[in-house]
């Protein structure tokens, strides 16, 4: 069996798992919308105010709701031994992590993309801001997938301190937030910000397979 066929089979398995678990994703999106409602109710329905701060709120709530299903990233595969079986099939842990990140990006983060235009309707955002938001979210969500992979693999054996996984994601996502929300600042050159975001994405795409695989190997040795 060639490597490409193995990779395709892996992605097929991920998609099957995703469709059997689709209610989880819908719950995340529901959480996202409900938290927008909570924000709007707590700030008051001032149209001008909401328009100025809408982008930041949408980004931070997207971030928070993507940390909700964090623990499911590797936990099931780790507990029932699928990770070891896939590794025995001839895929290195680094490649497994990379494929997991890609499938998380396509199957979990991309559905959020559909909810962004609806969410920006609630805040009455201008059209070019919505375009910017969607564009930065495509790059930023890739970074978020990498961060989720790092923190989920870090906490595989963590039985006591559950919050630290979300803390790690929030911590390293600060540059993403800064550059993604800063794109609407008229003084800043848009191209340079996008280049910076792509640069951060490439850095994390390089770091996360190595570090996640190291965490997974460590956890498997001490299971």
């Amino acid at each position: 069996m060639t490597l490409i066929k193995k990779i395709l089979l892996f992605l097929k398995r991920e998609s099957k798992l995703f469709y059997s678990n689709i209610v989880d994703l819908f719950s995340n999106i529901l959480f996202f919308f409900l938290s927008i409602f909570v924000f709007v109710f707590s700030l008051g329905a001032d149209q001008e105010l909401l328009r100025t701060i809408g982008l930041g709120i949408i980004w931070s709530l997207l971030l928070l709701s993507s940390t909700l299903s964090l623990r499911k990233f590797y936990e099931d595969d780790f507990n029932n031994g699928v990770l070891t079986i896939i590794h025995m099939g001839g895929i290195s842990y680094e490649l497994i992590v990379f494929l997991k990140i890609l499938s998380h990006f396509f199957f979990v983060q991309m559905p959020f993309l559909a909810s962004i235009p609806i969410a920006s309707l609630f805040f009455d955002l201008p059209v070019n801001e919505v375009y910017n938001l969607i564009f930065t979210f495509i790059i930023g969500s890739l970074i978020l997938s990498c961060l989720s992979s790092i923190s989920a693999s870090m906490n595989l054996l963590n039985k006591t301190n559950f919050a630290i996984g979300s803390i790690v994601v929030l911590l390293f996502s600060i540059p993403v937030i800064i550059f993604s929300v800063g794109i609407n600042n008229p003084d800043i050159n848009v191209n340079s910000l996008i280049n910076l975001l792509i640069g951060i994405a490439l850095i994390f795409l390089g770091i996360s397979p190595w570090s996640s695989a190291a965490f997974i190997k460590l956890a498997l040795r001490n299971k």
Partner: peptide
């Protein structure tokens, strides 16, 4: 103060 096994803690 998080992990049970010392090796996991240190390397993590």
């Amino acid at each position: 103060y998080t992990f049970e096994s010392r090796e996991v803690r240190e390397k993590t």
